[in-house]
Design a protein around this nucleic acid. Structure first.
Lengths: 262, 262
DNA sequence: TGGGTGCGTTTTGTATATTAAACATCCTGG
DNA sequence: CCAGGATGTTTAATATACAAAACGCACCCA
């Protein structure tokens, strides 16, 4: 059961492999030839041919400038944005986070826990020259960042234990938790404080302030954060200015989701 | 040949239908049950079952709160953003358009011609309360907007004629061209002027200023535009301020694409 | 020139994906 | 309380998607 057996009775392999083609093309830097795809999928060229043929005819992939090489087509874009537009929280948060960015002058983000990753749903870049590498659609491992700890506050302790068991711990900075116990400590810390300030916890030189967003049941469903390079942050202002502002923004979003508290 | 016959020898129907499931779910407001999907696809429930089964197992769809109903899963988001990140022009334009927004105070966009549509690749919302309905991923019919005319300047006249033949003309405003001749006139007008100012051409009350972006061969490959509600526009400033600024931004992007001219 | 390699494509027997039909539940209204 | 219809699921006969092998072609190096 751990291993997803591919020869399930109800499994349609054509679909499975076609979607993998799309993901492989999405992950590839350069356009790929049919043989490249076949190799990457460990599939016969003839089968890859049929998948490419179908995807191309549908507009999900297109041939690149160089003949017989393929890249993603524009039709996949619609799928991604259809997903985004279906997340009500993104629509709610967008204007609120835009205003927060304007008031604070640093980048603002909304993220959710998706699988074991932090998934960024909304991103507003700071006006300054610095451009954060976090953009809508970005994924990062949840255990390794302050924002992840904030989001992990939304799951139960047994779930968190299971989560921890699944991780392959990798040290990003000296602050990265490397086992279940230290992760749990971090998460509880954030949960009780109601916010978290990261000074280079994930990347040296990059800092952020994060606050959870709650839904009508009161559980954490998302996380608002400010982030930027240390040079763009005024650390003295965190408590007096950044934190109240971001808490206000998070509360606005929570209220829109039906959160009764304050 | 003209009609893409679905029972082609190399067609893999499982893939075709699975992707249609994703698109149908993407277009749907509410989560859909298995029977809903089967009806929408005009397919047997048993086949729909297998598709849903496969997509669910892969994480491309997930069951909604209500049992036995499905929505898009987060995994489709990756596909969409993989596409965006593969368009070098989007990365080039993003910071330039962010600055343009900050300088002008109105929303800025980068769009390309994709099929017969204007496809928005980059969008930076104005800081003001007004939020444009154009966002990344949005599609609009190219013939009906000033931005479309700008982009259509990038194709040859025979291609434009074919484009026109494909359209089903629909009147949006009094400025909407309703046949090939008047569309051609618009496109040529924009091409010779090198910019276009739309005052409610597509939607009453919504205005924009658009300028083409060119690549190393000198042909139009994208379009930069400012847009906002009439109330947010200072029409007196168009010639003296908006236009020079947007032309400078477009030229910066063109240069980064290898455009030799000025 | 000529054998070798890698490519996209086509063919074809066979393994298997598909779907009609049957099944088991769950509602819903009379 | 039961008939009728809708649902998700399973099965089994059949239609068909699949991949090994062959093909034609371009390229490369001896």
């Amino acid at each position: 059961m751990t291993k997803a057996s591919n020869h399930d009775v109800y499994f349609v392999p054509g679909l499975h492999r076609g979607l993998r083609v799309l993901e492989i093309l999405g992950a590839s830097e350069a356009p790929m030839s049919l043989s490249d795809i076949a190799r990457a999928m460990e599939l016969s060229r003839s089968s890859a041919f049929r998948l490419v043929y179908t995807l191309r005819q549908m507009g999900f992939i297109r041939e690149a400038e160089q003949a017989n090489t393929f890249t993603l087509g524009a039709r996949v874009l619609n799928l991604g944005f259809a997903y985004l537009n279906q997340q009500p929280i993104a629509d709610i948060a967008r204007p609120i986070l835009a205003q927060l960015r304007d008031e604070t002058g640093v980048s603002t983000h909304l993220s959710v826990l998706e699988g074991d990753d932090v998934l960024y749903l909304v991103s507003h870049q700071a006006r300054s020259g610095y451009v954060s590498n976090m953009r809508t659609g970005t994924r990062t491992q949840a255990y390794a960042s302050a924002i992840g700890w904030c989001l992990l506050g939304g799951i139960t302790e047994p779930e968190l234990q299971e989560f921890a068991d699944r991780q392959t711990w990798q040290r990003f900075t000296e602050h990265t938790p490397m086992d279940a116990a230290s992760l749990l400590a971090r998460v509880l810390e954030v949960r009780t404080a109601g916010f978290v300030v990261s000074r280079g916890f994930r990347e040296p030189g990059g800092s952020s302030v994060a606050v959870p967003v709650r839904d009508n049941t009161g559980s954490v469903v998302a996380c608002v954060n400010l982030s930027g390079p240390d040079s763009g942050f005024d650390f003295d202002q965190i408590d007096s200015f950044y934190l109240p502002k971001i808490q206000e923004a998070a509360l606005q979003i929570s209220r829109a989701l039906g959160y009764p508290g304050s």
